[in-house]
């Protein structure tokens, strides 16, 4: 396979709170390739959104990227370790928008209600591409047209609250693509939408990917969406990827007991797409009180014994496939 555009290794993002350190992302690895979609899946609170914000360098206090590498191949062709850049540096700001962009869950809440969508889209264009006001506006109208907003030259002067939910999410995507990023992080982009609109937005993302070779990181709870959209999958549990690999392999032969549990919770993917994950036995431990050994061991039905409870399983695998579980070897 080709070189990844983005390669995350051993990423750790911790929140220092008065109650203790919350290890929201802890030793996370994944790769993102041009023209492919990486589906990131896992239960609520496993650190998906924090991982996305870590990549963009917009983790809010008291959070901080405390370790690991975020290797990005830029437009210019060189490789940058984003984890080594200060979040508020000009160099990092130049990444946000032109290299990596973000679309997320609540299209209403993700826009400011005090400015027109045109204002909010052109802002980034003018900042990064240094276009004149009128050129930026023309480009924004073009973008709106591309994502399927009808009458874009009229809509551009409307406020977000004047648009429907689906249209807002389209505008959000247009805004994310304003500066031609190569990587788009979509954090549950369809959760707030109805089923028909969901399908339309996912279609749009696929179409844009085909047209522009966009690499997409698609964060979701929804195995149905993964099955439909993703090429590769990273299954996250308590801040790390417990299993990664091509979507077909993972669906055909899930290696980690957690992945199996997730898949069991939707036995018929095709008959019942987009079912939310029913809860798996036991509750998710707090990221501040990570169990010793394999973090999933307290809930695991296939636990091998003390080895799982005492030792951290290393990542094992060949090629694109990797799993952290002693069932597949690696036991000391």
């Amino acid at each position: 396979m080709a070189e990844p555009l983005l390669s995350v290794r051993g990423l750790r993002t911790h929140f220092e709170t008065p109650e203790g350190t919350i290890r929201a992302v802890d030793d996370l690895d994944f790769d993102v390739f041009e023209g492919r979609t990486l589906g990131v899946v896992g239960e609520s609170g496993c650190g998906k959104s924090v991982a996305a914000r870590s990549v963009l360098g917009i983790v809010e206090k008291p959070g901080r990227v405390v370790g690991g590498r975020i290797l990005l191949r830029t437009h210019a062709g060189d490789t940058l370790d984003l984890a080594a850049l200060p979040q508020d540096s000009a160099a990092y700001r130049a990444i946000r928008g032109p290299e990596i962009a973000l679309v997320f869950q609540e299209p209403m809440a993700s826009f400011s209600q005090y400015y027109t969508i045109g204002n909010q889209i052109t802002e980034a264009i003018r900042l990064h591409l240094r276009l004149s006001r009128s050129a930026a506006r023309a480009r924004a109208i073009e973008l709106l047209d591309m994502v399927g907003v009808p009458q874009p030259s009229r809509r551009i002067d409307e406020y977000p609250f004047q648009l429907s939910g689906g249209l807002r999410q389209r505008v959000m995507i247009a805004m994310a693509l304003a500066c031609d990023p190569r990587i788009l992080i979509a954090d549950e982009p369809t959760t707030a939408l109805d089923v028909t609109t969901q399908a339309q937005i996912l279609d749009l993302l696929r179409e844009l990917q085909a047209k522009r070779g966009l690499a997409i990181i698609l964060i979701t709870h929804d195995m149905g969406v993964i099955a439909e959209m993703a090429h590769d999958v990273a299954v996250m549990y308590l801040g790390r990827a417990v299993e990664t690999g091509p979507v077909a392999d993972i669906f055909a032969a899930p290696a980690h007991p957690y992945t199996r549990a997730l898949l069991r919770s939707i036995p018929t993917v095709l008959a019942k797409p987009r079912t939310h994950l029913p809860t798996i036995a036991g509750s998710i431990p707090m990221p501040s009180a990570r169990p010793a050994g394999c973090a999933f061991s307290p809930r695991c039905s296939e636990v091998l014994g003390d080895v799982c409870r005492q030792t951290e399983p290393p990542a094992i695998g060949e090629g694109a496939r990797s799993v952290r579980c002693f069932l597949h070897g690696g036991a000391p």
Partner: peptide, 19 residues
């Protein structure tokens, strides 16, 4: 969330906060 959106555009923090 709109603050995160603004940050994700690569605006400076001052600009994000004030605007």
């Amino acid at each position: 969330p709109y603050v995160v959106t603004a940050r994700a555009k690569g605006l400076t923090e001052t600009r994000v906060v004030l605007k």
